[in-house]
Design a protein around this nucleic acid. Structure first.
Lengths: 154, 154
DNA sequence: CTGCCTGCAAATGCTTTGCATCTCG
DNA sequence: CGAGATGCAAAGCATTTGCAGGCAG
């Protein structure tokens, strides 16, 4: 995993620094979607350290290199996720508890490719997000019920 | 159109003010996706005026009432679009020229509904965005070619 | 060595908030 | 009249930038 980063950097003659390694490591190991602050906190927890600016610059670099993706889940800040070895996948965000779950669907891939082709568009990335309520916790289920009844009466 | 807003406000016993009317009017008439600043500029152009805070508060209100939707096209700020009488639709964003085009696809609706159901998720809104390059201008087509050749050799 | 990176703090830019004042209903 | 809206300016925040000093290659 780290080798991929090393290779990409070498290819562009960019230095493989301690901070870049540490930040990439954090992101690669995490299964969650991390904010810049999450990354900084994780670094601190390991006794490492990198300035806020470096964290942002490195995350942007990883996105640039295609090793990470950036997401906006309407929280007022961005989150990042490793892209290495990950298949294209999409997200469902619970607006009650904030939980983000992922899913993949081959039909979705096919349809979006078709739509792009029809419009003479060369698709590079896509973001499919379904916002709603999950059924994980009691309060989320309550919110689901509330929403369903509102909808059915209007 | 404006009647819908009037009705929603009355229902909640919220005042139908001159500013709310003007801002909604701007949004309802526009076919583009407008930023808060775009709205303020459009107001000025008509000789109307509303403070920045009011524009933000009103746009948030329209979203709340379900009369508008909020979008983030990775520009560092949000854009708003009227939702009244509009069918669910999605976006393709050209990363070269910034053009945003819309599309609808019934299959997409079906698939996302299925996926949500499978996960015990109650979908409220969704955002499907395809980022890439369009074929409108010469420079966009150049970027398309460049991207295609990179992709085929890697 | 030399160029790119890092850290810090200051700057940005969008959006939100506090508060006095005004308006709709 | 009274609840809620408006306007302005002052916060708030995530993110970016400038610049002096450091580190990889």
């Amino acid at each position: 995993m780290m080798q991929v980063l090393r290779g990409e950097l070498r290819e562009r003659e960019l230095p493989f620094t301690h901070q870049r390694e540490a930040i990439a490591q954090i992101l690669f190991e995490s299964t969650r979607h991390m904010s810049a602050d999450d990354v900084a906190a994780a670094l601190r927890q390991r006794g490492e350290h990198a300035g806020k600016a470096t964290v942002y610059r490195t995350l942007a670099l990883l996105v640039e290199l295609g090793l990470a993706t950036e997401h906006d889940f309407d929280e007022g800040f961005k989150r990042y996720e490793t892209q290495v070895g990950a298949a294209q996948h999409d997200h469902m965000i619970c607006t009650e508890c904030g939980q983000v779950s992922t899913f993949t669907n081959p039909e979705l891939d096919r349809i979006l490719a078709e739509v792009a082709a029809e419009h003479g568009f060369e698709a590079i990335t896509r973001q499919v997000k379904v916002f709603g309520t999950c059924s994980e916790t009691a309060s989320c289920r309550d919110a689901q019920q509330a929403y369903r009844s509102v909808r059915s009466t209007s």
